[in-house]
Amino acid sequence: MSKIQKAFENGKAFIGFITAGDPDIETSEEIIMKMAEGGCDLIEIGIPFSDPIAEGPVIQNANVRVLSQGVTTDKVMDLVGRLSKKTDVPFVFMTYLNVLFKYGYDKFLSKASACGISGVIIPDLPFEEKEELSSVAQKYGIDVVSLIAPTSEQRIKTIASNAEGFIYEVSSLGVTGMRSEIKTDLKSITQAIKSVTDVPVAIGFGINTPEQAKEFGHIADGVIVGSAIVKIVEEKGKDAPDAVYEYVHSMKSALKEIE
């Protein structure tokens, strides 16, 4: 069993996202440790990209903040290397394909593997283009996480039956960011996925309250929260670690209430 799949053995999984280096490398390291302590079963670490086309304003602004401070892929790798020595919570990278492509797939994935990364989530890498990356990732035991969207329809079974690590079920059309209402029929999509694979499914995009975590935790194996955490960092800066801990703790507690 992959390290990612173990993250789904502790009840419904809570997956938190953070942009690496936000508000600065040191505080970021502290925030990620607090996310682990607060109850994250898996942590997505965003490597900043200049043009994050799947992100809403909160995460996009975090990318801008971090890049303007000179955070690079190498600095993010070093950060993850230090974190992996302090916690067993699995880490996955979330970034855009060009960040890996320009670095070189082999060089990127070998370094990522050495610093303790278990998977990568690449929003601009659909199923049709996945092979060029996954063939290299396999060599290093890194899972390339597949995304399934509300518009995937007949593609669900093809994507799900070839999935590894976990499946990222996108809750809504549009970009990342907090939503008060999610209308997609996630139950049927989850069922369609479950009919072809045992790979765990986590729902993300728009989730930010404990009530939503419970609602979607019922449907899937876990929930993913990004913008709500990044928003706390945006507002509190260096004082964010404790607030992030409280938030993560409240979300994981809500998930624990699910039988």
Binding site: D124, P126, F127, A149, T151, S152
Partner: peptide, 12 residues
């Protein structure tokens, strides 16, 4: 070339 876009757009 290719089709490096989010899954949401693939069917479209």
């Amino acid at each position: 070339g290719g089709q490096y876009i989010p899954e949401t757009l693939m069917n479209e």
